[in-house]
């Protein structure tokens, strides 16, 4: 079965082809970053306007890269939520109309399920049950995955997502938008011992996170500092340490609670080198295994949507009727 995947939930337009026999055959991505950069955040109306210009050219490229004709597509998966309603609609309507015209089944996929399943595109995929840490600009969540399709939320951020905290602190330190990756790079120039920031909620037994207080602490430290380049790097270092320590402590706690030694890491912050190093060391110590998506599939992409959709479409699951629906808000939790 060959599935076309379509992702338009935020500021990336992406299309991919996944096949039962050949695996991932193509993936195309257009990032709108330069459009939104000048506004210091994603402008929903501009995002939607860009999606509709790019969706069909990218689909044609993805088919070409997969050496596939329209008629070779057996099913179509698209992100139905959560995300920006207007942006989601472009991908959903296009996907549903295409499915209607080709007389092929379609399926709306949960964007976060896509992220959680992204490591399944790698050569050594994880085997459920496992604990999953989903950490991005929009989410910081710990799940227990007993099987594909069965997700139990163990804990989540009560305020800012970890990636959001990275971007906000980067903005405060004048590293532009989105500056999370720049902040992580700057942290490598930083030295330990000059600043210490709190590890929020680590002494609580639950698995929730809170990162909004951290950015206030960083702002105060920055104001009181000499504001030299080295101060900036030292603050970046201490901030990254605090976030990653917190993620590590809670993840370890989740693994112990669930008696699991398998961890899946997904989402944009999952590309952070220090996070990967620390989590890998932690799981090694537990004689467990940790699974990451390749770096390019940490952030939004359609390969994960094609894969997640394929998983259900091959079992005969599909959109129930011809009504097109998207869900800007949509919890991922079903046991």
């Amino acid at each position: 079965m060959r599935v076309l995947g379509i992702e338009t939930s935020c500021d990336e337009t992406a299309v991919a082809v996944y096949d039962s026999q050949h695996g991932l055959m193509s993936h195309q991505l257009y990032t709108q970053l330069p459009v939104h950069q000048q506004y210091g955040g994603v402008v929903p109306e501009l995002a939607s306007r860009d999606h509709i210009r790019k969706i069909l050219p990218l689909t044609r490229q993805a088919l070409k890269q997969a050496h596939s004709a329209w008629s070779d597509i057996d099913g179509i998966a698209y992100t139905a939520g959560p995300g920006l309603a207007g942006a989601l609609l472009v991908g959903a309507v296009f996907a549903r109309a295409l499915g209607f015209s080709l007389n092929r089944p379609t399926l709306g996929v949960h964007h976060l399920e896509g992220h959680l399943l992204a490591p399944f595109l790698e050569s050594t995929p994880p085997v459920p049950p496992f604990v999953a840490l989903l950490v991005s600009g929009g989410h910081t969540q710990l799940f227990y995955v007993s099987a594909i399709g069965h997700y139990r939320l163990l804990g989540e951020s009560l305020d800012d997502a970890a990636g959001e905290a990275f971007d906000k602190v980067a903005k405060m330190l004048g590293l532009g938008y989105p500056g999370g990756a720049a902040l992580a790079a700057l942290a490598e120039q930083g030295k330990p011992g000059f600043f210490t920031f709190p590890r929020p909620l680590i002494h609580r037994p639950d698995l929730n996170f809170s990162f909004s207080g951290l950015k206030t602490a960083v702002l105060q430290a920055w104001k009181k500092s000499g504001q030299t380049d080295q101060d900036k790097a030292n603050i970046a270092y201490a901030f990254q340490e605090a976030v990653i320590d917190t993620l590590l402590i809670k993840t370890e706690k989740a693994l112990m609670q669930m008696h699991s030694t398998r961890l899946v890491v997904a989402g944009g912050v999952g590309a952070n080198t220090l996070l990967r190093t620390r989590l890998s060391a932690c799981l090694e110590k537990m004689q467990g295994q940790v699974f990451y998506p390749r770096l390019e599939f940490c952030t939004d992409n359609a390969a994960m949507i094609a894969y997640a959709g394929w998983h259900y479409l091959k079992e005969g699951k599909q959109d129930a009727d011809l009504a097109i629906r998207v869900k800007a808000r949509w919890e991922l939790q079903n046991g």
């Binding site: 509709i52 969706i55 069909l56 689909t59 044609r60 329209w70 609609l89 472009v90 991908g91 309507v93 296009f94 996907a95 549903r96 109309a97 295409l98 499915g99 209607f100 015209s101 080709l102």
Partner: peptide, 9 residues
């Protein structure tokens, strides 16, 4: 997007 999806293939 409906017109694109219906017409392209």
């Amino acid at each position: 997007s409906l017109a694109q999806g219906l017409a392209c293939a």
